[in-house]
Structure formats: C-alpha cells, structure tokens
C-alpha cells in the first residue's frame, strides 16, 4: 500500500501484546494454576439477586458483567495470559471452531479467548432476528443480520479485544479476546485457570476483566513444576 501518510496509531488499550514468537518443542515445561478473586461486596452484585425466583425473561438476561462465586469469591470470565513470551509450544488453532450462540437473546458464552488465526462460529438459536455487530479496528469489523439456525464463521487474525453486540437486543454482548501466543486461559465459574507446557523462565502474567481491568504479576517457571498464582481484584 502506497500513498500513506502518518496514520493515527490509536486504540492501544484494545491491543494486547503483539510480538514475535518462535515455536519450539517444550519438553521440560512447567505449569501455572491459579485463581482470580474479586473481594468486593457481593451483596451489591446484580447477579444472584434473583435467588431462585422465576423472573420475567428480561431480568434473567441480565448482563454477566461480574460473575463471582459465592463459595470462594472466584471471578468468572477473566482472561489470564502470558504477555511477553517469545518462544514456546506450537501456535495451534482449534480445528473445531469455538462457538458463540445467541440463545434467548443472550450471547453464550459471554467471554471467549482465542489464539490469533482462530475461526469462531456465531450461531443464532432463537427464532427471531439478531444482529451480530463488532467495531473492531485491526480485525475487519462486521455487522450481520442473522435468522434462526444461521451460522456465521469469522476468522480473527490480529490480537485485539472485541465486543460483540446485537442492535435489537441491546442488553446482550460478548467479548472475544484474541491473543498472539497460546499461553492463556479463561477462568471458570470459581475463578480457576490453568496454563501448561511453559518453557522455564520468568514471565509477565496478566489478567483482564471487562469491568475490573487488568492486573499483572511476574511469575517464574521451573522445569516440570507447577506455580500457584492468585490474582485479587479489590474494589477501589
């Protein structure tokens, strides 16, 4: 492309690491297992307020902005990744495409973390019109109207955090977090994550959450050992 004068290099906050990476065979790798916690006041969370009551559909589609386990304060849907790794295991994109489904006007799951180059299938499981709308910059954005049983396959090539929205059901949205190396995981409902086959060394481990932002820690990996890491988000 010629004819290009001074671009605005903008939106850095949506872009995670973007560095070179060499694939090697990892034989003596270590692992990180850990937990992400939110120590805020659980009573104020919009979630779980319904208890076991049957609520009208509009209330049950409340956004999954902050999902915290009552048992251990574990935080769901946080993405943990090593940001500064330059060599390690193969960058293998899944042959079976991860799925984001729209059911009862809600995107499921709410957060999907993928390796750059992965294709995601976005489905419509509702018998009505949805629109699947992104405003990404590095990855080509899209806004597609979909009807019942439609399946859209979209490939995401550049590291970026992308929000999926639907213009007909404004309450629902989902996140696609695209990373440039295969060392990442999304926390489960009790806040647990696991990353393995990491070549020994010292790395920066980062956690991202849509509401609570980012935290970072340094972690040292020893051959064939497991490091235990805890991230704690405290309110303010």
């Amino acid at each position: 492309m010629s004819g290009f004068v001074g671009w605005n290099v903008i939106f850095p906050k949506y872009i995670l690491a973007d560095k070179d990476y060499t694939e090697v065979e990892v034989t003596d790798g270590g692992a990180i297992i850990g937990n992400v916690k939110y120590m805020g006041d659980l009573a104020t969370l919009s979630l779980n307020l319904s208890g076991n009551w049957e609520l009208p559909e509009t209330s049950t589609t409340a956004p999954e902005k902050l999902v915290v386990s009552r048992i251990n304060n574990g935080l769901k849907y946080a993405v943990v990744s090593i940001t500064d790794i330059t060599k390690g295991k193969k960058r293998a994109t899944p042959t079976i495409h991860p799925i984001i489904d729209q059911q009862k006007n809600t995107y499921i799951p709410h957060v999907v973390a993928i390796l750059a180059g992965t294709t995601i299938d976005i489905l419509n499981g509702d018998e009505e019109l949805h629109t699947v709308h992104t405003c990404s910059v590095k990855n080509q954005p899209f806004n597609l109207g979909t009807t019942y049983k439609q399946r859209i396959s979209e490939k995401f090539d550049s590291p970026e955090i992308i929000k999926l929205t639907c213009d007909i059901h404004k309450k629902t949205y989902a996140w696609i977090v695209i990373l440039d190396n295969p060392y990442f995981d999304t926390t489960d409902k009790n806040g647990y994550f696991e990353i393995c086959d990491i070549p020994p060394g010292t790395y920066k481990l980062q956690v991202w959450h849509e509401e609570l932002g980012k935290l970072e820690k340094e972690v040292t990996i020893h051959p064939k050992e497991t490091s235990n890491i805890e991230f704690v988000y405290s309110p303010n």
């Binding site: 597609l144 109207g145 439609q150 213009d167």
Partner: peptide
C-alpha cells in the same frame, strides 16, 4: 453490504 458504523446490518448471508 450494510452501513458500516451503524446498526444497519448486512443481510448478505441470508
């Protein structure tokens, strides 16, 4: 094609 930057989606797949 849809209207990029607006809620007007593309219905190309449909």
């Amino acid at each position: 094609t849809g209207l990029n930057g607006t809620p007007m989606p593309s219905f190309a797949k449909e």
